[in-house]
């Protein structure tokens, strides 16, 4: 139950062995390039020739393709269809269905947007598949991210399943006292009140206790934090990061001067 919101899959692969920050830079570079490059097929080609090989190298091809087909493709596909059909503005009509006309230019633009979204989400999915969230946060904290920020991210990931379980308990408790949960839409919308009240107020009380608990563990200590896990940062990591940064700067400069 606790791992439901963590995508992370442990493997012994060169991608897993990379420093989390390097992977974050890699993903940011891919996304940045994919979103700014002019080529119509750039994002598509990047998914095919960068992300897929990376997934293969992480020994997670099946998982990656699974998420891509089940989650990302429907999202991007839906946007593609809706934009193609409903956004007017093209001149070359492909076909007409009653009052809806679909033009070539709109379809092309929709494809560009959808393929970029596909790239954007799937790059992050690959990051999350190959990087343990607490390693990512520890590494970023070590590099200067405020620990409070890292705490909020990680504890939220962990607490959402607990909140869902608690919501179920509250619903069961209210139903056992005769609350109607199976009638019309409006009646069920009203149900939110007796659910949300206890859930929210209960959580506020918990926030205070949790604050006490982490204070008792020296969370606000002014000493320099140390980390249980050693997160390797090799010269290769640094090389990859600098190369990617340089690549982004050059491609940005090229776009600014050559266009």
């Amino acid at each position: 139950m606790n791992d439901r919101l963590s995508f992370y899959r442990k493997r012994n692969s060169p991608v897993h062995a990379l420093n989390p920050f390097t992977k974050l830079i890699l993903v940011s570079a891919l996304i940045f390039y994919g979103l700014t490059a002019k080529g119509f097929w750039t994002a598509t080609l990047m998914v095919a020739f960068v992300l897929l090989p990376l997934a293969l190298a992480s020994k997670l091809l099946k998982e990656y393709v699974g998420v891509a087909l089940k989650v990302i493709l429907p999202t991007a596909g839906f946007m593609f269809v809706m934009q193609s059909v409903f956004i007017p503005g093209g001149t070359t009509e492909i076909f007409r269905l009653g009052f809806i006309s679909v033009e070539l230019e709109t379809v092309q633009r929709s494809y560009l947007i959808a393929s970029r979204i596909f790239l954007f989400i799937s790059a992050f999915v690959l990051l999350l598949l190959t990087t343990h969230p607490s390693e990512l946060m520890s590494d970023l904290t070590r590099r200067g991210l405020p620990p409070q920020f890292a705490y909020v991210i990680i504890s939220t990931l962990q607490i959402i399943p607990q909140m869902q379980a608690k919501a179920q308990t509250i619903i069961a408790a209210q139903r056992s006292r005769g609350l109607d949960t199976e009638s019309s839409f409006f009646k069920r919308a009203g149900l939110l009140v007796p659910l949300v009240g206890p859930l929210v107020f209960g959580s506020l009380v918990e926030v205070e206790e949790r604050a006490i608990a982490i204070e008792a563990r020296g969370f606000t200590s002014t000493r320099t934090k140390t980390f249980l896990h050693d997160i390797p940062d090799t010269p290769a990591d640094k090389f990859i990061r600098w190369t990617l940064t340089l690549f982004i700067i050059i491609s940005l400069a090229a776009r600014l001067w050559l266009s």
């Binding site: 607490s134 705490y151 990680i154 504890s155 962990q158 949790r210 608990a213 982490i214």
Partner: peptide
């Protein structure tokens, strides 16, 4: 006991 678990660790 539940509220004393930091939530930051796996």
């Amino acid at each position: 006991p539940f509220n004393q678990i930091s939530g930051a660790k796996y």
